[in-house]
Structures are given as C-alpha cells and as structure tokens.
Amino acid sequence: MRLLHTADWHLGRLFHNLSLLEDQRHVLNQLIAIIDREAVDAVLIAGDIFDRSVPPSAAVTLLDEVLHALCEERKLPVIMISGNHDGAARLRFGARHLRQSGLHILSDLAAFATPVTLTIKGVEVDVFGIPYADPEHVRSQFNADVRDFDGAHRYLVERIQEQRHPKRPTVLMSHCFVDGGSASDSERPLTLGGAESVAWEPMQHFDYVALGHLHGPQYRGGEHIRYSGSLLKYSFSEASQRKGVTLVDIEASGVTQIEQIPLTPHREVRVLEGEIAALIDQGKTDANADDYLLVRLTDRHAILDPMGKLREVYPNVLHLEKPGMLEARGTQQLDRDRPRFDTLDMFSDFFEQTSGEAMSDEQARSMAALINQLQREETQQ
C-alpha cells in the first residue's frame, strides 16, 4: 500500500496581503500529478487545510475541486484531521455522509480512538487521527488530569495504543509541535506564554506518524515520525526550505520505504541582498523576476522611493529592509537627534535626484536648521 502524507495547505493564505490561492492551485495540481505518477493508494492530510476557521469561499471551492478529483474521479480514500488554523466543527460538516465516498474527516476529538481501516491490495492498515486540541479541551472532554500540551497529547496517544490491533500496521496522524522541531515564522503559536511542545517518545512504536503544524520537512526521534511540511513557503524564513510531500510504502510487516517528493512553486520565495543599483541591473535580466522577494539594501545612504524603483524590475518585492542604513549609524542609540539626521539624509537624496546635483554646505545647514525648528515646534505642541 502506498500512502501520500501531506499537511499545512493553508488554503486562503495571504502573504504580505497578497492572495496565494493561484499559487496553491498550481502546487495542488502537481500533487494530483504525483498521485497519478506514483500510483498512490490513499492520501493523508495532517491538518491546517484552511488558513483560518472561516475560510474565504474561493478557498472552499479549491478544496472541493481537489477532493472531487481524488475521491470521486480516482476513487482514492482521503483522511484528514483538523489543525489549529481550521474550524474543527465547520470542517467536519457532512463528514458522516462523505465517508461513503472515501473522504474521512477526523476533527471530532470524542472519536479520536476509532481508526479508519484501509484495505488495499490485500493489506490492512489502521489510521488513527488526533485533531488539534488544547489541554483544556482534552481535560474537559475526558475528565483527564492533564496540564499542558505534552500531557494532553501523551494521554491521547496512550489511549490509542490500547486500541491498536495486534496484527495490523498502525499509522498515527497528529497536528502538534514535537519537541526539538524546527519552526518557521509562518506557524501560529499553539499557546501564548506556555509550553506547547510534545514528546516524540510516546509515538515511537507506531509504524508511521504523519505530523502537521511545522512547515519544514523534518523528522523527530526516527524517520517514521515525520512532518511532510507545507505546500508552499509561507514566510521568508522558509526561503531555503524545499517543499514537498511524503510517499510511504507500507506492507503487512510495516513500513518499507519513505521518500520525500519535491513540489515546484509557480513563484519562488527569495531573499536578495545588495545595493539598489546592482539589484536593479540584476533584475533586468533575471529570468525569475516575478518571484516573491524580500530585499535587504546595503546602501549606506537614504534612497528616495526604493520600493518603487525595485518594483520596476521585480514586481513582487513584498518586504524591504535597510541594514546598510543602520550600519552607517554604527551602534548609536536612537535618540532625539536621530530623526533629524534621517530626515536631512532623505531630503539630501531627494534634492540630488530631482535637481541632478548635491546640496551645498550652506543649503544643508539651512535645511538642518529648518528641520530642527519644525521638530521643536512639534515637541511644544
């Protein structure tokens, strides 16, 4: 039996206020092509299907199209759990009826110990799914003495262990932050000010553990306890990650092979660094100028409308940093003089770019005096 493990689709996601829906459609079409090419028998989606609990209608439509292609057209079973971004109750609307078409939505915590049994090519595999649940939910649902995420997750995993069939391979799906995992900027914290990680040790005896939540492909405690990673790069901290999905071959004796298959985005997420003139020259011949970019300018002087200039060659510059300006100031603390210097630098650059020549010393002194006067008046007001 060949399983495809994927997670963290985040359909409807905005990236610096830019919709990624068409980018998501692009990689989901690749996912379907991989399923066809690799003869996948079942699909596991380990949470965060949507980016928020009430997703935009276009995101719901895209999910419907993908599930139709998998469950109806290809007759493949699909098992999904809810993540911390999903609205669990909304996600499982119609879940009891959809089972008949092969779609299993495991977002009801009360049913976490009931497996989905896949019978394919003479192999039977039990799949248990733990939807995202905070400790308070677990405590109230089961009257369990748990105080943190690790205690709650351990309690659920141990209950599943008690239900395991002794002669069937068992797959566990969970949406959680496994201790020691490598996080990215795009993952929403599971809790504020508290411990959110869970131990991998209670999960080590399952044949395969399909995890969701962390966006970088990785494993903890063993290659079979694995995050497939997100479909796309959802922050610039993920620029060096290679996104993809995970293929898992499993027989009656257990897992025989695990393979990560890459996905190629419509637009890459990149970080560029350098002086603005060099970056603009580079952009004129850059074959991938439409990529989503964070630009770090190393120029040590003020620049008039740097974003506008860069977007003439790189239309999808989404964020701009100016470490060169900070270095030019050294380690000087921000004080009341700092705004004056910045304003004078900006005006000097504006003057030079509009008049074609630098300000004279006398003009610079006059402008500095005017800026000082305006700042004093502002302070007095």
Rank of each mutant, 00 (worst) to 15 (best):
E377D: 15
P131C: 06
F15W: 10
L294Q: 14
W200C: 01
S360T: 15
L304H: 13
L293E: 05
T114C: 07
Q163Y: 02
L172C: 01
L63D: 01
R154C: 11
E158V: 07
I49S: 02
I130S: 00
H301E: 09
D185Y: 08
V269T: 13
R270N: 09
V255D: 05
V157R: 02
K167F: 01
L28Q: 01
L344C: 03
G222E: 02
F351H: 15
E22L: 12
R188Q: 04
A46L: 06
D48H: 13
N316Q: 15
E223D: 09
L297I: 12
K284T: 08
V146D: 13
V313Y: 10
V209Q: 01
E352C: 11
L320N: 10
A358P: 02
D207R: 02
Q282E: 15
D299V: 14
S19W: 02
F93V: 11
S235P: 10
R311N: 03
V209P: 00
E187A: 14
A278V: 15
H26M: 08
P306H: 11
F351C: 08
Y219P: 00
S101K: 14
L370K: 08
P265Q: 06
V313T: 07
T264G: 03
G212I: 03
Q380D: 09
Y155N: 09
R188M: 03
A113H: 08
E321K: 05
H153I: 05
L62S: 07
G151V: 04
H10Q: 05
I258W: 05
T6E: 01
R25M: 03
W200G: 03
S366N: 03
E268G: 13
P55L: 02
A195V: 11
Y227P: 05
D23N: 06
N143A: 10
V40W: 00
L172H: 00
L3T: 00
Q204E: 14
P169H: 00
L21V: 11
S184N: 03
E352F: 10
N143Y: 04
N17P: 05
H175N: 06
A289C: 09
V127N: 01
P55H: 03
L18S: 09
